[in-house]
Each structure stands twice: as C-alpha cells, then as structure tokens.
C-alpha cells in the first residue's frame, strides 16, 4: 500500500466517519437482542460478521422470536437484501478489471453506505484509476464492518440479561421502524407499507408464517400499481433500507 493508496483509503474513511457513531449503539443493541432470543454471544457475533446486514439481521431476529421456520427466514433475508444485487449491478462495470480476490473481499463489505460513497466518488472524479478507487472503497466500507463486529460483541457479552418485564423484544420492531419509515417518501411506498401491514394481521393465522409472504408480495404489487396508475414521481423515491 503506497502513499497514494493510503490517502485514498483515508478519504473514504473520512466520508464514513459520521456514520460510525450511530453504528455503535445499533450494533450493541443487536448483540443484546440476539442473546435475549437465544443466541450464544459467540454465534451472535458470528451472525454480524458473516451476514453483515443490519436490517436483514433484525428481520431474522423478529422471525425467530415469532417462531418462524428457516425457509421463511431465508426468503425474508433474500428479499430484504435484494437491493445488494442492484448495487452489485451498478458497480460491476467499474470493478470488472479487479482480480477475483479483491472482488470477493469487496463484496463482503458492500453496504448501502459503501455503494453510495463509491458512486459519489465516481461522479466527482470519473477517471479515477481503479487501483486508487479500490482503496477509497475499502476506506469507506471496511471500518464499518469492524465497528459492527466490535459493537455486537460488546452488546452480546456485556449486555446483562434483561428482565422480561422490560419487553426488550419491542426494540426490534422499533429499530425496523427507524430504518424504514424515513425512506417512505412517495405515496406508492406508503401504499406498499399500509397494504402489507394490514394484510399481515389479516393473514396472521396462515401456517408457517406464510402470511408474511402473502402480505409482502401483495404490498409490493399495491405499491407498483399505485405508481403506474397514479403516476407518483419515481424520482422522489430512492429508498434504501
């Protein structure tokens, strides 16, 4: 790593810095909640290290608490993380000349933030050479992963067992609300949320938590039809959760 690479890494890191303070308590709470629903502290940390996707991890926690089976959990994580595929598609052309080892490493730390920062850097400097760009990406991506693992560990090992009367399980839907609600910026996404929320209650008695799938699919379609029938402005959307 020469000086140029180091400067580029630091540039990305500086961009990421404001995000880090929020990630610490979030990760700690993730560790506490995971241990609360039955993870060992070590498996809670393994979860954060291997999955490394806050919203999807929370969705899985909620479903484990509800007693859902593995297929529903995996399917939910797949859908919640589908946006990663869109980021992957957007960055593929830029990164295509990197060697496989770099690609595999970079993909593991691909997050909403890493995508957004890297995209912004390319807008700023379209001709930035790839061997500098990859360090910028790493600077804006990798430290968040480190913080995520450390803070989950702190929560998992030092979050004392909290009495049931505190209703800590309610922190999971609250965190999900905090992640998704600020990104509901069009009538179409509001429609998706309301239709899906209503149906999730109506279909709550379906076996194997299939009500979740039915509610989510119909909610997505409702959002889509709201958009094409009533022409709400797609440019206002830009959700990322």
């Amino acid at each position: 790593m020469n000086k140029e690479s180091r400067d580029e890494f630091m540039l990305g890191f500086k961009k990421l810095m404001p995000v880090l303070p929020a990630a610490i308590p979030f990760g700690m709470l993730m560790g506490v909640v995971a241990v609360d629903i039955g993870f060992w502290p070590s498996t809670a940390v393994l979860n954060s290290a291997l999955v490394y996707a806050g919203t999807a991890q929370l969705a899985a926690m909620q479903l484990i608490g509800d007693g859902a089976g593995l297929p529903i959990i995996v399917l939910t994580v797949l859908v919640v993380n589908l946006r990663m595929m869109m980021y992957s598609a957007a960055l593929a052309e830029r990164f295509k000349n990197l060697n496989l080892r770099w690609k595999l490493l970079m993909c593991h730390v691909l997050t909403d933030q890493a995508y957004a920062f890297t995209w912004a850097r390319y807008e700023e400097e379209p001709d930035l050479p790839l061997d500098r760009m990859k360090w910028y990406y790493m600077g804006s991506a990798a430290p968040l992963g480190v913080i995520w693992i450390i803070s989950t560990s702190l929560g998992a090992w030092f979050g004392t067992r909290i009495p049931a009367s505190w209703e800590l399980d309610f922190a999971v839907p609250l965190m999900l609300i905090a992640m998704v609600v600020p990104n509901i910026r069009s009538l179409a996404s509001l429609t998706a949320a309301v239709v899906s929320g209503f149906l999730s209650i109506a279909a709550a008695d379906m076996p194997l938590n299939l009500g979740l799938v039915v509610a989510a699919v119909i909610g997505m379609l409702a959002g889509y039809f709201e958009e094409i029938w009533f022409h709400s402005d797609p440019a206002q959307r830009g959700e990322q959760t």
């Binding site: 919640v80 998706a192 949320a193 999730s200 009500g211 979740l212 989510a216």
Partner: peptide
C-alpha cells in the same frame, strides 16, 4: 417496494 412491504409485514404483527 420490497423494503416497506416486507418490513411492515414484520413490524405490524
């Protein structure tokens, strides 16, 4: 529309 739909199907219940 996956994020609002899926997450509200978890949050509401």
């Amino acid at each position: 529309y996956a994020p609002p739909a899926v997450l509200f199907a978890l949050i509401t219940p």
